[in-house]
Write a protein that binds this DNA or RNA. Structure first.
Length: 447
RNA sequence: GGUCGGAUGGCCGAGAGGCGAGGCAAGGGACUGCAAAUCCCUCUACACGGGUUCAAAUCCCGUUCCGACCUCCA
C-alpha cells in the first residue's frame, strides 16, 4: 500500500480483478458507466499483453439502497408504490445494466454475484470478524466493525482515524449502537422492515454495504485481488472499510492495487439529480448517436482526471468514429492486427488512452503508411479501445420511397432544376439519408 | 478544520526541462450549380510573484482562485 503507481503482476499469468457496482435501485448513468469502462479497459489491456483476467463484478441488490441522507430504501419504496416485488424491481435494473454494458462494448465479467445470494458468505465473514475481536454486537443489537482494531485504517484514503470527526452533516439514526463514530455496520437488524431481510445469528436483518465486497472477493477470487476498481467516491469509506474487513479476515493485504476512476461532470457540473444533468446511455441513443461515440469521448480523457462531458463532445466523437470506420472499410478486409509500440505503450502506461487516440489520428493522416498497415494499426488499437472500428457502414436496405426520391433528384439535377434538387435533398435528409454530389453524380449513405 | 487534486488559446483538452499535441468552434481558400463531406491555410496559451538552470508550461518556494473526499454516491 503505497498510494503510488505500481506495475500489475498477477500470478502464473492470471490477474484477478474486482469491480464495485452497480447498485440496482435506479438506472446507471454515464458516469457510473465510465467506471465500468475503466475495468473493461484494464482487462483488455492485460489481455493484450498476454495475461489472463478473472473479473468479478458484484450486483448490490440489497442493503445499500438509499440515495440521499433520508435512509429510505429506494427499492422498498418503489415496491410499496408499484406493488411489484422488490427483487423483481432490482432484477429489471440489473438487466438494463447489462444492456448498457453491451451497448458500450464492455466485455462481460466472469461472474456477477448478487449480494442477496451471498448471505451465507457474508454472515460467516461477520462471524469470523466477531471471533477475532474486529467486530462486536452493539447496544442496539446490530453488528459493527471496530475501526480501532485495524491499525492501518486510513492508509488507502489518506484519512487518519483521529482526524475523522463525528459526521457533522448527519448521523445514521440506526447507528446509535456503535462504540466509536468511525465504526460501521456489518449487520443491521430488521427493525420495522419485513421485506429483503434474512435470518442471522444476531436476528433477522440485512447486511451492511461494505461487507458484500469483502465476502465476494474472498470467496470468488481465492482471497486475493490483484486489481480492485471503483469510482473515486468509493475510496472512502467503502474501500477503506472493505480493506479493513478483508485484511482482518485473510490476515494479508488482500488487494494489491486499487484503481479509482475520477468523476464525470456534465456540462461543468457533477452529474446529479438535483443538478438535473443526469445522462443515461439511453439518452445518447435517443439523440441518434452511436453509443460507442460515448465510449470514444470517454477514451479521449484519462481515467483519473475529472472530465467534463458535453453533447458537443459526443457529437464530435460520433462523426470521427464514422470516419474511422469508413477509412478501415476502404483499406480492405484483412483482419490481421499490426503491432504499434506507441499505442501499446500508451495503454500500458497507466492506461493513457488519449495518447493512443492521438496516435491513431496521426496514423490516419500519415501518407507514408499503406492501407493495409493503417488498417492493421487501427485493428490493433481497437482490441483495447473496443470501438468496433471494423464495423461496416450501415447497409440497411433503402426503402422504395427513398429510391424514388433519389431517382427524381438525379433527374432534376440532370435538368439543372436546382430548386427541386435541393428540396429533394432536404426531404431525404429528414429520412436519415445523407446526399453527397461528386463528379460521378450523387451518392448517399445512412446518417 | 483535515486530506488530496487542479489552474494551458473562443471552448475541450495532452504535455517527458530544450524542435508550438490534438480536437471542436471560428475565419480564409480549393472543390461544388449550391451545399455536405474532404483537403489546405490562419489565429494561439501556459493563474500570479519569486527561485533553480545555459534553458521552465514542466522542477522548488510562496500567493490567489477552483474542485474532490471527510461516514449518501461510479
Amino acid at each position: 500500500m503505497t498510494r503510488k503507481l505500481q506495475a500489475i503482476q498477477g500470478q502464473d499469468g492470471v490477474v484477478t480483478m474486482y469491480c464495485c457496482g452497480p447498485t440496482v435501485y435506479r438506472d446507471a448513468h454515464v458516469g457510473n458507466l465510465r467506471t465500468f469502462l475503466l475495468a473493461d479497459l484494464l482487462s483488455r489491456t492485460l489481455q493484450m499483453v498476454g495475461l489472463e483476467v478473472r473479473l468479478v463484478q458484484n450486483i448490490t441488490d440489497v442493503g445499500h439502497m438509499a440515495e440521499d441522507f433520508s435512509d429510505v430504501d429506494k427499492i422498498l419504496a418503489e415496491s410499496e408504490k408499484t406493488k411489484v416485488d422488490p427483487f423483481e424491481i432490482a432484477r429489471s435494473y440489473e438487466s438494463k445494466f447489462h444492456q448498457d454494458l453491451a451497448l458500450l462494448n464492455i466485455k462481460a465479467a466472469d461472474s456477477y454475484p448478487r449480494a442477496s445470494e451471498k448471505m451465507n458468505q457474508m454472515i460467516s465473514a461477520i462471524e469470523q470478524l466477531i471471533a477475532t475481536d474486529h467486530a462486536y454486537v452493539g447496544t442496539d443489537g446490530s453488528v459493527y466493525f471496530d475501526a480501532t482494531s485495524f491499525p492501518s485504517y486510513g492508509a488507502l484514503s489518506g484519512n487518519r482515524l483521529d482526524a475523522l470527526k463525528p459526521g457533522h452533516r448527519y448521523e445514521y439514526s440506526d447507528d446509535g449502537g456503535k462504540k466509536f463514530h468511525a465504526d460501521w455496520a456489518l449487520w443491521k437488524l430488521a427493525g420495522t422492515r419485513t421485506q429483503m431481510i434474512w435470518d442471522s445469528p444476531w436476528g433477522a436483518g440485512y447486511p451492511g454495504w461494505h461487507i458484500e465486497c469483502s465476502a465476494m472477493s474472498i470467496e470468488l477470487l481465492d482471497s486475493h485481488v490483484d486489481l480492485h476498481v471503483g469510482g473515486i467516491d468509493l475510496r472512502f469509506p467503502h474501500h477503506e472499510n472493505e480493506r479493513a474487513q478483508s485484511n482482518s479476515i485473510t490476515g494479508n493485504e488482500t488487494v494489491t492495487t486499487w484503481v479509482h476512476g475520477e468523476h464525470l461532470l456534465f456540462e461543468g457540473r457533477k452529474m446529479s439529480k438535483s443538478a438535473e444533468n443526469v445522462v443515461l446511455l439511453h439518452d445518447v441513443v435517443e439523440r441518434g448517436l452511436d453509443p460507442l461515440a460515448l465510449r470514444f469521448t470517454l477514451l479521449e480523457n484519462r481515467y483519473r482526471s475529472q472530465m467534463d462531458l458535453s453533447w458537443a463532445s459526443i457529437e464530435a466523437a460520433h462523426v470521427t468514429l464514422k470516419r474511422w470506420r469508413q477509412l478501415l472499410a476502404e483499406c480492405g478486409t484483412d483482419l490481421e492486427c499490426k503491432f504499434d509500440s506507441e499505442i501499446s505503450s500508451a495503454f500500458t502506461s497507466d492506461l493513457d488512452t488519449p495518447r493512443a487516440m492521438q496516435r491513431l489520428r496521426a496514423i490516419e493522416k500519415d501518407p507514408t503508411i499503406g492501407a493495409l498497415d493503417k488498417r492493421g494499426f487501427f485493428l490493433f488499437a481497437d482490441q483495447v479501445l473496443g470501438l468496433d472500428l471494423n464495423r461496416l457502414p450501415e447497409s440497411r436496405e433503402l426503402p422504395s420511397e427513398c429510391k424514388e426520391l433519389l431517382l427524381r433528384r438525379q433527374k432534376a439535377r440532370s435538368e439543372k432544376n436546382w430548386a427541386e434538387s435541393d428540396a429533394l435533398r432536404k426531404e431525404l435528409d429528414d429520412l436519415g439519408i445523407e446526399i453527397s454530389d461528386g463528379v460521378d453524380g450523387q451518392s448517399w449513405q445512412w446518417k
